[in-house]
């Protein structure tokens, strides 16, 4: 069983694992948003959360304060996170455009209505 160092969190530096936990929570919340929200914009927000959770992992693995050994990603982590942010912005723009189009055509933003592709 892994060791959960929660007891002395106030007196000891945190590690990458803590960041990963926060990222996991964001990720899970995002995934659940995507899975439970009927509002298309809610799903978009879920995607943003998921991407942020992933970004947090990248930053954590690239940070030398959290894990100062030779295996850190270094700046690559930050660079990848940058790309994720930029692509998330692009993705959000396209997704919003799609949602608006969907709204224009169906007069609704309920994703459950968007099931023309069902088998």
């Amino acid at each position: 069983m892994p060791y959960f160092p929660l007891a002395n969190i106030l007196t000891e530096p945190v590690g990458a694992a803590h960041y990963v936990v926060v990222g996991a929570i964001l990720f899970t919340c995002g995934v659940l948003c995507m899975a439970t929200k009927r509002n298309a914009l809610g799903i978009l927000m879920g995607i943003e959360l998921v991407l942020n959770g992933a970004n947090l992992n990248f930053i954590a693995f690239g940070s030398r304060y959290l894990r100062n050994d030779a295996n850190t990603l270094g700046l690559d982590g930050q660079l990848v996170a940058l790309f994720v942010i930029v692509l998330a912005a692009a993705e959000a723009a396209v997704a919003l455009a799609i949602v608006l189009n969907f709204y224009n055509n169906h007069d609704s933003i309920d994703v459950d209505r968007a099931d023309q592709l069902h088998g």
Binding site: P2, P5, A16
Partner: peptide, 10 residues
């Protein structure tokens, strides 16, 4: 996340 010792922090 917690099963990797290297991630525990310094």
């Amino acid at each position: 996340a917690f099963s990797i010792p290297a991630w525990q922090g310094m």
